[in-house]
Design a protein around this nucleic acid. Structure first.
Lengths: 344, 344
DNA sequence: TTGACTTATGCTCACTCTGAGTTTAATTTG
DNA sequence: CAAATTAAACTCAGAGTGAGCATAAGTCAA
């Protein structure tokens, strides 16, 4: 322990700008959607982007300590300004402060630290047709995360070869072993067969960061000023570090679903159990066993049946309608839904 | 949705200072400890505290965007400077930006946003005797969180009456109901009997925030500039928002323990199963069933037995020594330990 | 040396939870 | 009406969990 460095005090410390970004999630038509703000106009207004840049971004804006009493209050302001939504659920995700990962920034002397938030809504937003703001499918940005129709092709076709190239390119044996291990943990990539052994659906961020580190996603090329002749993995990129924040949100939501009743924030007030199941499947990215899901949900006391029936859905026996019992929060310490994979 | 407010751009936004604080946890003698830096000297060096203030603080310092490539790098620097430890595990907890909760700050124009980190170590630190820096028992700051010897007296004696006063003092029926509900969710406080029904050991932060909101902890009185003739709940206070950060750390660690093998960061390389159990108990704050704990740990594949035996512990049959199998991280997606309460 | 005491470790047992179905019911569509 | 489709009730075996008993292997004091 050295003496406390009296030299750099809080007050002398170079100031920092805090960027607040929101991953606003909704599930529409059994697909997980995230609210996207596209185009230079928005980013220029915020004064962050150079005029010729363009791309997808999350709703975001700077934290203004004079206006905003808390970070969340600031974030809510930006969401209100930039979306037609008023999400009922907000949760802070993570604070990123990496140098060089906020590309497009004009003034490099002011470092931008970004605080990511997750917001959930069941609103449509009625902005389907706009080019500038819309709900985008989050699997457009992370195609390898959607296992609902089995293992995504992109894994064999692009990711696995890309990672193997990256592993082979390690400078020494130690580094090579380290890369191999990371690829195994994140993507279940094994040496032996060309099979993926395990897949932890919550490791969305870890996987993205690995691809970033291996220069397999556009942002890595962009941030490091490399040429774009690299072979990239398919999947839309985003401005700044927004895809990383989206990855964080996906992982967090997938995890939280299992021990807190957050899915209901994504549901209308009344819903069928199949609806609920499809919503959960959209989020976690794999299919579930229908009968067991039903048993789990009904047995958890999280929902109650409502008298009427529903048929509009599709051909078949009409399903009962359910609603979320808000008072479970009082009864049980940690209501949620334990899920188990049922791939294929 | 209004038009993007072009008026406030990222670059025009008032700058903010980021404070990095570390909750460095160790378990010593079956007690959970947190590294404390006490005294004005330290805080004055950082330029945050007025000269006549004093108290317990976490190791902390400002984030310097010129020196530090990432937030975590900055934090590690401060931990290295202010403690004799080098923790093997770091995890970001939360970013707090509330106005008025960073008391002692001289210059109110520069808002301090604090990013809290959790760090785990098994080092003693050999600073036992110092008055200025030491490991403090975290239950000194949160006496109501230690249920290892049954329900803490402080709940009946101070907290329950305090909360009831707070509920009764609500201005209208709606607010009263809201307060009642929060007290029930956080402390299991029920209307009917004077019994606590449920206790979610992970809700450490929620409980602290409730006590803060009810003006039952010193920091609330301090931050709001109130008189100290309030009846406060026992428990040491901390400088700035550090007790809140500690609460966040406790809750997070208690949760993480159950699904990630983080306990082992707190253990020496070789340990007995009882040692491991006592460490877990210290963290989660309640006792566990010995035989079942052993079955769980041995069956999880997280540990392997080492040849030698150990006896120094106490009178009784010597226990086998175990060590953590680092490679479980490769085999299983989410190794951890599911725990169940066994109070009394 | 023995008996009391202490801690470790092995094992049982009932009960719940979970994964994976089968069967029957209630509709729509061709 | 038959075929297709979705809902919903029920079964069953195996794994996991909570609780406790029994035995093993030491220490300590008389």
């Amino acid at each position: 322990m050295t003496a406390s460095s009296g030299s750099s005090s809080v007050l002398n410390a170079p100031a920092v700008v805090i960027g607040l970004s929101a991953v606003v999630v909704a599930v529409q038509g059994h697909e997980p959607k995230v609210f996207i703000v596209r185009g230079a106009e928005h980013a220029l207004a915020a004064g962050v982007m150079s005029p010729n840049e363009d791309g997808d971004a999350l709703p975001f804006g700077p934290f203004d300590p004079l206006q905003h009493k808390t970070l969340e209050e600031g974030l809510r302001t930006w969401v209100r300004d930039q979306t037609p939504l008023s999400p009922g659920y907000f949760e802070q995700l993570y604070t990123f402060g990496n140098r060089g990962r906020y590309a497009g920034q004009r003034d490099e002397t002011k470092r931008v630290v970004s605080v990511g938030y997750l917001a959930l809504t069941h609103e449509k937003g009625s902005v389907e047709k706009s080019e500038r703001v819309f709900f985008g499918n989050w699997y457009d940005y992370f195609p390898w995360e959607d296992w609902r129709d089995g293992k995504p092709r992109i894994l064999q076709d692009a990711i696995e070869p890309g990672l193997k190239r990256w592993i082979a390119a390690a400078e020494n044996a130690e580094e090579k072993e380290h890369r191999r291990m990371r690829a195994q943990v994140c993507f279940g990539l094994t040496d032996a067969a060309d099979a993926f052994s395990t897949w932890d659906e919550e490791k969305v961020l870890e996987r993205y960061e690995l691809l970033y580190g291996a220069n397999l996603v556009y942002e890595a090329i962009r941030d490091k000023g490399m040429k774009v002749d690299y072979v990239l993995v398919p999947g839309r990129s985003m401005l700044y570090d927004h895809r990383r924040i989206l990855a964080t949100a996906m992982g967090r939501l997938r995890g939280k679903l299992k021990y807190r009743p957050v899915v209901f924030e994504l549901m209308p007030s009344e819903f069928t159990l199949l609806n609920l199941q499809k919503t959960v499947e959209a989020i976690v990215g794999h299919r579930l066993h229908k009968q067991n899901f039903r048993r789990l949900v009904e047995g958890s006391g999280m929902v109650e049946e409502v008298a009427g029936k529903k048929s509009a859905e599709a051909g078949g026996r009409p399903a009962a309608l359910f609603r979320f019992r808000r008072d479970v929060l009082l009864e049980r310490p940690a209501p949620g839904m334990k899920l188990s994979a049922n791939l294929g």
